[in-house]
């Protein structure tokens, strides 16, 4: 609870720091590529296997009682609304969140953050703003890719292993599709991007006590942001669906 207040203060400072455009702009571009490069392979890897499994489980569950094109419905809806955003979010909390808190934690314990301050660089504008912005921008892009790859994997599985036609799969895919699905997925992943990066920064910043402290804050960042992702996931389902 004390942590929540301190996190809130950091986020507020980050919002106020948005006016120091000259400090964060160039750095944000660098973070964008870093977050992207860090994230894409793992996110696509997970999405591909999820798509395959979803298609197979759907056909196993339906056992002929339901038309096969419902495989397309299930793969599409589940990837889009739930597994794409959440699995990507969880994977990136391990990849991006851990990376951020380890990097900032090391900077903290080696007094690099103090050094920034003494050189009149506001550390939040310099370190937090670029990372959080990169998260908010890159998570949706990476998640969109992951959803695409997951659905494609489901489609190929349906063709190869389930004797479905592309027509059937696409028919199912589009049957219950609503534009709001996209909005919903984007709201979720933007919030996950914000949560993972801001919590990574938060634990990095408050690191104490050498290499051991860095390890501790990295673990905490991953655990806490994963839990918050799951809670937020339920929250969005309750409020938006």
């Amino acid at each position: 609870m004390v942590g929540l207040g301190q996190w809130g203060r950091m986020v507020w400072e980050a919002i106020v720091s948005l006016r120091d455009v000259d400090v964060w702009l160039g750095l944000t571009l660098r973070q964008l590529t870093r977050v992207g490069v860090d994230s894409v392979p793992i996110a696509l890897f997970i999405a591909m296997f999820t798509g395959i499994v979803l298609a197979l489980q759907a056909s196993y569950t339906f056992t002929g009682a339901i038309p096969l094109y419902f495989v397309g419905v299930l793969v599409g809806k589940t990837m889009m609304l739930e597994l794409g955003p959440v699995l990507t979010g969880l994977a990136l909390s391990g990849r991006v969140g851990a990376n951020i808190s380890a990097e900032l934690g090391t900077m903290r314990v080696t007094e690099q953050i103090d050094a920034l301050e003494t050189m009149a660089y506001p550390p939040v504008a310099y370190l937090v703003v670029p990372r959080v912005l990169a998260g908010i921008i890159m998570f949706p892009l990476v998640t969109a890719l992951a959803i695409g790859v997951g659905i494609a994997a489901g489609w190929l599985t349906s063709l190869q292993l389930l004797d479905m036609s592309t027509y059937e799969f696409v028919y199912g895919l589009t049957l219950f599709f609503q534009p709001f699905d996209v909005t919903f997925a984007m709201v979720k992943t933007i919030s996950f991007g914000f949560v993972v990066t801001s919590i990574g920064c938060f634990y990095g910043f408050r690191t104490r006590g050498g290499a051991e402290g860095v390890g501790r804050s990295t673990t905490q960042a991953v655990v806490v942001s994963s839990m918050v992702i799951l809670v937020l996931d339920a929250f969005w389902a309750i409020t938006l669906l």
């Binding site: 080696t110 007094e111 103090d114 009149a120 506001p122």
Partner: peptide, 23 residues
């Protein structure tokens, strides 16, 4: 305040005990 501190720090150089270089 924050602004005042940053203003002051422009006039102060700080040599850290363990260098604290940006790695």
């Amino acid at each position: 305040d924050r602004e005042g501190l940053f203003e002051l720090r422009r006039n102060v150089g700080y040599v850290f005990q363990f260098a604290a270089l940006f790695d």
